[in-house]
Amino acid sequence: MFEVRFHGRGGQGAVMAAQTLAEAAVIEGNYAVAFPFFGAERRGAPVLAFTRIDNKKIYSKTQVYAPDCVVVLDDTLLDTIDVVAGLKPEGIVVINSKDKPEDIDLGKELRTGAINATSVALEILKAPITNTTILGAFAKATGIIKIESLEEAIKRRFGEKLGALVGERNALAARTAFEKTVIGKSKGIKKLEPRKQWLPTYQELPVGGALVEGKTDAGLIGPGSFIENKVMGWATFRPLRDKEKCTMCLLCWFYCPEGTIVRISDRGDLMTNYDYCKGCGVCANECPVDAIKMVRARV
């Protein structure tokens, strides 16, 4: 049995990638299952999906804890999530990154296939949707599936839903990625502290789960505690405000759905707290004097 865990963000198509891989495996005469971690998926929020491949019927219905391969659709996830947790020692990482494997720090030295899937996708699909592109890299890095089978699976699944042309283009994206994937070994320097989580026993759990403002070893809980949730990783772009142009009309402050723009200096100036900016771009779009520009959040 070969088990794969996909890490992505809501809207990137991790679930579709997992399903397409399963279909490709079936095309090759194997048995495969693919399933999402059924979370409350929101655009930009981290999501998980899984694929299992075997040459006989698969009975296991649990999540994958010790994958043979981890696929990372978005390398910003590396900052907050230990994507290689549980990966088998001889396991493989397939990652969307502009860097070479040697420059990617996974906290462990692991066999790694790297592809700048975002740029391939932008070039071929004209959109930063990397789920088919990354599958090409997966085929190259793992060798457990033929690129032809993947192309076929992509055409079927995407073609069925979005039309033959879309299927063809996505297949081409996978093929292009297949050819461009660089295989090497990742760096193993950083130590990623697993995010602390408050896990009370049933006796410690407040009665009925009712919470007031509180603090635990893992941080704040209760009303207002979502500020513990830094969402900067969701952002592809972030706003830059030109103070000279700004007239302090406060429209950006009013519109920001996150509350990430705050008034400072006794309300005479604004500051953007990028920890909570998801990069929607509403502020820039609405600024009446064009004082806000959206720039790439990471270069």
Partner: peptide
């Protein structure tokens, strides 16, 4: 202020 009836993930519902 309190929160009663929050959306509750599997990490907590069993308890």
């Amino acid at each position: 202020p309190s929160m009663i009836g929050t959306f509750m993930p599997a990490e907590y519902i069993m308890e």
